[in-house]
Nucleic acid binder design. Structure first.
Lengths: 251, 251
DNA sequence: ATTTTAATGTACGCTACCGAACAGAGTAAG
DNA sequence: CTTACTCTGTTCGGTAGCGTACATTAAAAT
């Protein structure tokens, strides 16, 4: 279909590395050095960027895609550790030095990302400039998110966690429309699909969301934030505090 | 009592910064620069090194003490995020750049630590030498621990989590004897005290631990590791992988 | 249009854990 | 030695979430 093809081309043309807030926050000279080596890649739903223990080749900077970092247990069950979108990058272990992690990186919402060979990232990193400092601050933001995930897993109901998860996703998308099955959400949260169905049903009854077969629309975001546990707000506030102004400009 | 006083003095004399594996792993010249500014401080049970949001003044390097990083919820409930002993340092946010965190650092097992003014740490850090690289790798180890805590909170029983927690503590102590009430453990794990009592009772029945009023002795560590979930082993293996050889020598 | 597949809805018993309340049993303080 | 306090043991009803099974419905495939 030529129509669709053009739409895709337009989408790619519309993409700029600056749409990723992390890249955007870097000083111009760093961007000059890195951008020529950036490669725009599609991020289809379900794509695995890397597996547990696997040495990473690239660092990914999502524009409109969302990636979940999740741990896969020996019995196959999963739990999401953190989520990364246009606010950050995937592949921290390349700069932290471990080269691999114990988690899997999975595309949770389709879109695009710019990617860079790990080696180029490390070269710029070793200049000990802006990239180093921004990476460290982002690293702390990621730590905060993981910590809060642990807390949330311990103390909050599925409904609250669903709200947190939806809000995290919304923040990384342009509109309030998620392409997302309940089964997938359940896998991310590490709960039963039925649990998500029930929670979603209750949220619908309360007039917070509409949904049908793989689509969710958040119709009343303020109400959803009220129904959510504190975990979402804590992470958001701390992330805003940690990441520099240029992040906020684009927001 | 003079006897006790001498015992204390001996204890202090016995202390060396090198007992902290992180410090020990640093190259000699860095140690030369840092050690003169190290201050040995007692770490009494329950001492709060810093509160959520509080700007930290010092970085702490435990020798035989153990510190829990935990999040305190709005309603007062807690959840442990990570635990640090002679394997690491408390105050990562000073080097990562955030200056504070959303968590509290609480001494969970009494002992000693060396501490350093944050400014001195940052000065050495800005030389971009060994300290930078080791800190980054330690940061990844900490991330791994937090991630696994999230997973464990989601999927595993109190008994399994208790095993994990006791093993984490054992690794950071000299003998197999913990000074620790069940109430305290419950607070760390973010569960009811009664839940810990039951789990401990079962572990005792299985011949894995002995305990009474604030003391726990692990009598069969291999069995405890078998009863534990995978979370303990995953973190241990990854930590061993991430941290350099000099860490292992002293182990 | 019909069939097939994928997504969602519902129901049921089960278990782990919670909240609350209270009963021993060590340990420390008077 | 007695009292007070802290720690541990136990009980009981309530509930959130699990595992399983199966029904329904929307979308996609043919």
């Amino acid at each position: 279909m030529p129509t669709k093809k053009r739409a895709e081309r337009v989408l790619e043309i519309d993409h700029q590395p600056g749409q990723n807030h992390f890249l955007n926050a870097l000083s111009d000279d760093i961007q000059q050095r890195l951008l020529p080596h950036m490669e725009l890649v599609p991020m289809p739903l379900g794509k695995v960027l890397y597996e547990s223990g696997e040495v990473m080749r690239h660092v990914y900077f999502p524009t409109n895609s969302i990636v979940s970092l999740l741990y896969v247990m020996e019995n196959g069950a999963q739990a999401e550790i953190a989520v990364v979108g246009h606010d950050g990058l995937i592949g921290m272990s390349l700069v932290l030095g471990g080269e691999s992690t114990t988690s899997r990186a999975l595309v949770q919402s389709a879109g695009f990302a710019y990617r860079l060979l790990g080696q180029r990232m490390k070269t710029e990193f070793s200049r000990h400039g802006d990239l180093l400092h921004l990476t460290l601050r982002y690293s702390q933001a990621l730590i905060t998110q993981m910590a809060q995930t642990a807390v949330c897993n311990r103390h909050h109901s599925i409904e609250q966690q669903l709200c947190r998860w939806l809000l995290l996703s919304l923040d990384r998308l342009k509109d309030n429309h998620l392409v997302m099955t309940q089964e997938l959400i359940a896998n991310m949260l590490g709960v039963r699909r039925e649990g998500v169905t029930e929670a979603a049903g209750r949220l619908h009854t309360k007039g917070v969301i509409d949904y049908s077969r793989g689509h969710i629309v958040v119709t009343d975001r303020p109400k959803m934030e009220a129904l959510c546990c504190e975990c979402y707000g804590v992470v958001k506030a701390e992330t805003d505090r940690l990441l520099p102004c240029r992040y906020q400009h684009k927001k």
